[in-house]
Every structure is written in structure tokens, then in C-alpha cells.
Amino acid sequence: LKEGRHGLDLKAANAELRFLPGSDLLLEVEARLSSLEVEGAWTRAPGGYRLGEGRAVLRVRAFASNLEVEA
């Protein structure tokens, strides 16, 4: 992801997100009753995590889910 706004809603699900080199995004996460694991070159940002300059935005809402994010 390099530009634009994107979204992912998880309800009682498992998801593994792997971002390719060159991705540039802000990951906004809202997790309730969920587990979150973030690995790689991410930095903490208000409301989530940033990879690169954060030009694209991915908003993830997770309820009773497991989310793994890797860059």
C-alpha cells in the first residue's frame, strides 16, 4: 500500500497481513477482545503504527479476533 484509504473489519476471525517492501502506510487499529501482534519496521503513531511516512491509511477494526501484522 502506498496511497489511498483502506479498511478491514474482522469479527471472530484470524488475519495475517504482510506488507511488501516499499509500503508506506499508517495502520489505525481498533481492537476489542482481540490480540494484536506487530512485527517489523513499524513505529508507534497516534492511533496505531506507521510504516514509512504513512501516506496510505489502513483502518482495521477487530472484534474477538487475532491480528498479526508484518512488514
Rank of each mutant, 00 (worst) to 15 (best):
Leu1Arg: 14
Glu3Asp: 14
Glu3Trp: 04
Gly4Ser: 06
Arg5Phe: 14
His6Ile: 12
His6Glu: 08
Gly7Glu: 12
Leu8Lys: 13
Leu8Ser: 05
Asp9His: 15
Leu10Gly: 05
Leu10Tyr: 10
Leu10Glu: 00
Lys11Phe: 09
Ala12Phe: 13
Ala12His: 06
Ala15Ile: 09
Glu16Pro: 04
Phe19Lys: 01
Phe19Ile: 11
Leu20Thr: 12
Gly22His: 05
Asp24Cys: 00
Leu25Asn: 03
Leu25Trp: 00
Leu26Tyr: 04
Leu26Ile: 11
Leu26Ser: 15
Leu27Asn: 04
Glu28Ile: 10
Val29Ile: 09
Glu30Ser: 12
Glu30Leu: 04
Glu30Asn: 11
Arg32Gln: 15
Leu33Ala: 07
Ser35Ile: 10
Ser35His: 12
Val38Gly: 02
Gly40Glu: 07
Gly40Phe: 06
Ala41Val: 03
Ala41Arg: 15
Trp42Leu: 05
Pro46Cys: 01
Arg50Asp: 06
Arg50Met: 03
Arg50Lys: 07
Gly52Gln: 02
Glu53Gly: 12
Glu53Asp: 15
Gly54Pro: 02
Arg55Cys: 08
Ala56Leu: 07
Val57Arg: 10
Leu58Asp: 08
Arg59Cys: 13
Val60Pro: 02
Val60Met: 06
Arg61Leu: 06
Ala62Lys: 00
Phe63Arg: 13
Phe63Ile: 15
Phe63Glu: 15
Ala64Val: 07
Ala64Arg: 05
Ser65Met: 03
Ser65Leu: 11
Ser65Gly: 10
Asn66Phe: 11
Glu68Arg: 10
Glu68Val: 08
Val69Thr: 00
Val69Tyr: 02
Val69Leu: 01
Glu70Ile: 11
Ala71Trp: 07
